[in-house]
Design a binder for these strands. Structure first.
Lengths: 68, 68
DNA sequence: TCTAAAAGACAAATAAACTTTACTTTTATG
DNA sequence: CATAAAAGTAAAGTTTATTTGTCTTTTAGA
């Protein structure tokens, strides 16, 4: 699964720590998601999308390998 | 978090078992998500949206209580 | 260049998703 | 009504997300 968290953060000019605080998780959680270390819950994805004023599908997308 | 899985399944006329098979999880997982027993991963939500030919945001939405 | 903030990384512990198995209840249809 | 498919439920076990703490590395700015 791909994500554009880093780009969205850059657009809004907020840090991992600030995003974490806004959505109510730890900074390491945001960092781990951003670098593809793990997949967030849909609830967290919805909150992140809300904070960025966009949609889950704008931020997260399936990779080809996700279907194997 | 709210979801319209049941409605989407009805539109496409597929069973929980069929949806489960298409996205590669067990039937109980689909059932549990549908009745709000647990929150799917974003990866699973993306696959479900793909199968339904729609977006994650069309199927899953934040509830007021999700921010407390 | 120095320094501080931000980001990356790692490990141990906990919480929650997901599986498997198995049983009950509901719903559609003969 | 009878029956079969679909849906709901539940418990035990496995995997994975998330936390907390700590430490290193990168980046931006004075």
């Amino acid at each position: 699964m791909k994500n554009s968290l880093k780009v969205e953060r850059a657009k809004q000019n907020i840090t991992q720590a600030e995003l974490a605080e806004k959505v109510g998780v730890s900074r390491q959680t945001i960092n781990s998601i951003e670098i593809g270390k793990f997949v967030p819950s849909t609830l967290l994805a919805l909150k992140i999308a809300f904070v960025f004023g966009t949609t889950v599908d704008e931020i997260f997308a399936l990779a080809e390998t996700d279907w194997t």
